[in-house]
Nucleic acid binder design. Structure first.
Length: 106
DNA sequence: CAAGGGGCTGTCA
DNA sequence: TTGACAGCCCCTT
């Protein structure tokens, strides 16, 4: 139904569909959106989100299972904190996509 | 209209 | 495992 939606709109929708305790990579979201190369756009889009957004942006990480923010960044700790609160476990500073990856651990 | 940047990805060494 | 290079596309000046 979102056939006429912009890629950005799709990204928002897809991210909103990420279940709790699960994480998805930018590339994966972009792929689901229909464009495997729009990974960067996903990041750009999230960046454009308001701070009071209800989108689970914290469930979006890079393909390495790591957060794309520097640890000194408040966003990093916030994201990590939220993920841990949902049951996601960080091992050596990264997440096991095998267990917490969206539609990847089922 | 042209140029630059971006929370990236995948491959090679 | 990490580091470096190139490729991809959209959005904002």
């Amino acid at each position: 139904m979102n056939s006429e939606l912009s890629i950005r709109e799709k990204i928002w929708q897809i991210i909103a569909y990420i279940p709790e305790g699960r994480v998805a990579s930018y590339g994966q979201i972009a792929r689901v959106a229909g464009c495997p190369n729009h990974a960067r756009l996903v990041g750009n889009t999230l960046r454009n989100l308001p701070k009071d957004t209800k989108l689970p942006w914290h469930r979006v990480i890079n393909s390495q299972g790591r957060i794309s923010f520097p640890e000194s960044s408040g966003a990093y700790q916030e994201q990590r904190n939220r993920l841990e609160a949902e049951g996601v476990i960080f091992a050596a500073g990264r997440i096991s996509l095998k267990e917490f990856g969206w539609q990847d651990g089922v």
